[in-house]
Design a protein around this nucleic acid. Structure first.
Lengths: 172, 172
DNA sequence: GCCAAGGCTGCGAAATCCGCAGGTCTCGGT
DNA sequence: ACCGAGACCTGCGGATTTCGCAGCCTTGGC
């Protein structure tokens, strides 16, 4: 049953999370509600979530597991690295000539890069990087990122202070 | 099994999280190790974490609760709003004349703003905003942000595709 | 109509969470 | 020096939650 092959047969039974064109699943209202619950508290018991969204404990558990497996969401601890102590952080705007996506992929492969997004505007890509110290930061930006073939230019914004960080879209 | 814990029971004074001048607590190695565990899996059982860091289940539970209460970390579900479906996202660079922090606070108060960071570079502040649709996005940027007294200029980067999003500083 | 697949429910059994009492250590006041 | 307060840890039961699985229902293909 581990088909997972290309298999894209049109055979499409009903499914709370089915694939659309690029492989990103479409979510129904119940899954959205479950995610909202977990955005408030990632450790909330399945039974409590079930009560809130109108499903049994087991059903919630299965759906959560599926959302996790599909990579639609992740349940994790988030912190402000600056608060936690060591490390330098910065956002880097990148301009690319040629294939933007391949550069984005290259950035994604770097362990120091935590966040990569392709954008419209005066930057093609924004990447957030977390480093040990200034030397490390400098090294990543100047030696690694600027060295990528296709990178036309970069601009850096070193983090001074994180003011807000939430994950509550949908609940307001 | 000699729990290879991180705890070094001697040199350390008491109080695993004590305040420094700005109110941000200083964390000891054990708390860092606990956070690392929860960055891998926010639902990992306390007993398993305890085994990994060399503490009892109850001790881990107390520390996690404290870290949560202090706001040092949060355990939540994170998603890519673009994947989840609706909503437009953008990063906005802001230039300020006068008090930067008060503008940052004003941005923090907006529910559409999920992320605010003060930076060094050609922007004073970077803010990530999540909106219902293009109209909403336009409204927030032009009517709300630009209207703030002290905002000299803004530049927007509309998100096209999120490529990477991790929370694993410290584990590499 | 029949069958396969996906999803939901309803159980026990196992594991986890929770609250609390009791012990140790350090600091600071008397 | 003595003693109390505060912070932290451990060790327990008991309440909850998680887990795995069998069974039922519905949908869509053949």
């Amino acid at each position: 049953m581990q088909s997972e092959g290309v298999a894209s047969r049109s055979a499409e039974h009903r499914d709370s999370t089915r694939e659309s064109r690029n492989g990103t699943p479409h979510l129904d209202a119940v899954s959205l509600a479950i995610i909202e619950q977990l955005q408030e508290d990632g450790r909330r018991p399945y039974a409590a979530i079930g009560k809130a969204v109108g499903l049994s404990e087991a059903a919630v558990r299965q759906r959560v597991q599926k959302l996790l497996d599909q990579g639609v969401m992740q349940i994790v601890a988030v912190t402000d690295p600056l608060t936690v102590g060591f490390r330098r952080q910065a956002m880097v705007g990148v301009n690319v000539e040629g294939d933007v996506e391949s550069i984005a992929d290259a950035l994604t492969d770097m362990s120091e890069v935590e966040y990569v997004v392709m954008t419209a505007g005066s930057f093609d890509i924004l990447a957030e990087i977390v480093c040990e110290d200034d030397d490390h930061l400098l090294d990543v930006i100047n030696k690694r990122i600027r060295a990528l073939p296709g990178v036309r230019s970069t601009e850096s914004f070193v983090y001074l202070k994180l003011k807000k960080q939430t994950y509550m879209w949908g609940t307001r």
